[in-house]
Design a protein around this nucleic acid. Structure first.
Lengths: 189, 189
DNA sequence: GAAAAAACTTGAAGTACTTCAAGAAAAACA
DNA sequence: TGTTTTTCTTGAAGTACTTCAAGTTTTTTC
């Protein structure tokens, strides 16, 4: 079954006719490795549901260094919701770390879909609620753990990321320098 | 008009009968200054819409120091949504910084309300979407600004908080020590 | 399969903060 | 109003990281 439908059905029931309706609003898109999916200063026109590959959500700091705020893999939604919702320029970049396949929906289609199938409001509420919870937990970890603790914690809770993502991106996600990560790994801290 | 209804109507239309229905699900609660509204390890049973006063959402770190993750004032929702939704123990505290008046709704009533008035799913989706956006922006600032920059930024964007909140809570919200904030203010950095 | 590009490692020097301790000021309380 | 509690300030010493620069390894590309 389609992974998006599968995902939705974890949160709300959906009969076959509704399922068909849902899919009719989405398009399939591919992105090459390293391709930029959203650029700072642009409006986030689409929400993506990733069916294959790994992306990162990042910023370009004042020194021109890229810092990762979030990763996304299969069965995750990724978008700058604020920019998408309010149609205002985004502060963020989204980039394909691996070759990506995704289902995409633009603002107009999204509103039309919600109008036709209002029960999806609940699905999206629950999704975003989870993301918000994750974001708060992340801030908690940034506040309470040392750099080394954050690395080990990530390592034990999300080993799949450690494999899939370059170390320098991981370092920026954990909010320390790539050199320091290298030293942690070598046990030289 | 009731501040909650006013708030909801910024996002979705609501006729008088619906408005009455909404209010019938809520209770009015008061909390004294310093009273704990949610304790770590407990399930967050209620969502609060604050009509008067100021609260903080915080954790107790491994050294027993309290670190503020969020503030809330009039017309803000406050809850550990994850704990509320999944009925799992919270990692967070919520405490009244000033005397609080709030509208509260428990899990059961919340689900019943959404069942009776499904259009509210949209309202809550939009609310949480905004909170999530704010949380991401917050992480961005933590990553890109120095301690001093974060203070000045907060000072210029949210001067009302600087007035209402003890400095040591502000310092922990900005992720540095109260002593350091004192030095920033004195220009001794 | 060679060349180019990207990612990782290492050590030395520097710095933006933290921690501690003690006193002063402000706010709350009885 | 005086007393207690809470909050804020100050300086000195310490530290968890960063930055830089150069070399090495791994991955990608044609």
């Amino acid at each position: 079954m389609n992974p998006l439908l599968q995902h939705i059905r974890k949160f709300i029931p959906l009969d076959d006719r509704e399922a068909k309706t849902v899919l009719s609003y989405f398009e399939t898109e591919s992105f090459k490795k390293k391709q930029i999916m959203l650029e700072e200063g642009h409006i986030c026109n689409k929400q993506y549901f990733i069916t294959k590959g790994c992306v990162r959500f990042y910023i370009n700091n004042s020194k021109g260094v890229e810092q990762t705020l979030q990763f996304g893999i299969e069965n995750w939604w990724i978008a700058d919701y604020l920019s998408f919702q309010e149609q205002i320029p985004s502060h963020f970049y989204i980039q394909a770390i691996e070759a990506i396949e995704a289902l995409s929906i633009d603002r107009k289609s999204f509103e039309a879909l919600l109008l036709e199938l209002p029960k999806l409001e609940r699905y999206f509420r629950l999704i975003i609620q989870k993301s918000f919870g994750a974001s708060q937990t992340r801030i908690k970890y940034l506040f309470t753990m040392s750099a080394e603790e954050r690395y080990h914690h990530m390592n034990s809770r999300f080993p799949e990321f450690i494999q899939r993502v370059p170390q320098y991106m991981l370092a920026s996600y954990l909010d320390f320098s790539p050199e320091f990560l290298s030293k942690i790994r070598a046990g030289k801290v």
